Computed example of a mutant assay.
Amino acid sequence: MELDEFDLALIERLRIDGRASYESLGADVGLSRTAARARVQRVLASGALRVVAMVHPEFDGIHAFGHLSLAVHGRTTAQVAESVAQFPDTPFVSIVSGRHSIVAELRSSDVANLADTVSLIRSVDGVQSVDTLLYTHLVKESHLPAAQQPESLEQFDDTDRRLLNLLRQDGRMPYADLADRVGLSRGATRTRVLRLIESGVVAITGIVNPTAFGMTRMTGFQLHLETDGATALSAIGRMAEVDFLARTLGRCDAVGTLITRTGAETIDILDRMRAIDGVRDLQSWTHLELVKEQYDRRPLRVLPRSVGAGAAR
């Protein structure tokens, strides 16, 4: 599918507000409401874009985060990546260039369950070695609600959770359809959805495959920092091209992801990072194929070894 500048502009606005009206989308990019609607529906139908509810990890009981770098031997990289993607606690899996062949992100209820998942991934056929980083602080996560800590979760009931589950499937589901599914009026449904968004529990956003259609370049990086590096991380997090950044415990002090349009832009951003006071060393890798990006799915609280091992082979 060929995407022009209008398509890319619409996608960018849907990443900011996945429930933006067709009228406002058209006005933002210089199209009529009808033309904007047709383009958005075409992009959604192509699979280049999904609009879903991204729920705050605290709401789903997620308290442990990690990053894995995998070396592969004995099976193709694609086969191993598909096996790793079967685990419910791996919302992100990508084939990359460099020393490691695959990187994956882990999100689990606690460190013990995260460690169990790492052990299961080590046992997957074709996984030669696993290098694990634990996230100690999420500095920037474009896909999550902006609030570091959502308001009290006790105020939300089963109806709110049913609405969230529907919006995880289709973030642009009309209020009338949502209302029919949960048994409320359209006005009451709209009020609940807006309350969920304003509370910091959920963000409705467009999720794209950055390595598809030649749209963008996706680059991972790791940092070694001087002293605590807080000022350097703050500066890097403010860069528009930085899509994700986390403070880590392990082989490096931080790990992140860049989204850029061209190779020249990628080089420029990496050079700017290296020049920041407090950055001692920077290493990077290129994402070649995004195998899984499914942050809208709740992880299992307990992953039985027999089930996980069977799913991974």
Rank of each mutant, 00 (worst) to 15 (best):
T136F: 05
M54Y: 02
L31W: 01
S46K: 00
D180H: 14
L70Y: 02
Q79L: 07
V93N: 04
E293W: 11
E154S: 11
P57D: 13
D281I: 00
I62N: 04
G26M: 02
R313C: 03
I102M: 05
L153M: 04
S284C: 03
V139H: 03
R172T: 13
E289N: 09
R301G: 07
A240F: 00
D243A: 10
G200K: 02
T216G: 06
M54N: 14
V302H: 15
Y295F: 14
N209H: 09
V242E: 02
S123V: 00
Q128H: 11
F156T: 03
G61P: 06
G263P: 07
V130K: 02
N165L: 02
H143Y: 09
V72H: 05
W285H: 13
R186N: 07
L49T: 09
H73R: 15
V302M: 08
V130D: 13
A85C: 09
R37I: 09
S83A: 15
L8W: 06
S21G: 12
D296W: 06
L290E: 15
V202A: 13
R75C: 04
L196C: 08
M1W: 00
G30H: 03
D271Y: 12
R13W: 10
L194V: 14
I62Y: 09
A38I: 01
S306M: 04
L144G: 12
F213Y: 09
S24V: 12
G30Y: 03
A45V: 06
D131W: 00
S152H: 11
S185A: 06
Y22F: 15
D17V: 01
I16G: 04
E12V: 00
G26N: 01
D60M: 08
C252D: 11
E23Q: 13
D160W: 01
V72F: 03
T286F: 08
I197H: 04
M173S: 05
P150S: 10
V291M: 07
P304I: 04
V118W: 04
M54E: 07
I259M: 07
Q148E: 14
S32E: 06
R301I: 10
E226C: 00
G263E: 15
D253C: 01
G256D: 11
R122D: 13
R107M: 14
L225I: 09
D125S: 08
V139M: 03
A104I: 10
A176M: 08
R192E: 15
R313D: 05
K292F: 13
L258F: 14
S108R: 10
A78R: 15
R192Q: 14
R181L: 13
T117F: 01
A235F: 02
G263Q: 12
H143F: 04
I207Y: 07
G220H: 12
G126E: 10
T216Y: 06
I204Q: 00
V29G: 01
M239W: 01
T77S: 05
I267P: 00
R217Y: 14
L163Y: 03
K140P: 06
P210M: 06
M1V: 15
L153E: 03
Q149N: 11
L114F: 00
V208N: 02
T286A: 13
T205L: 04
R15C: 07
H100P: 10
L223W: 08
G278C: 04
V291Y: 06
D89A: 12
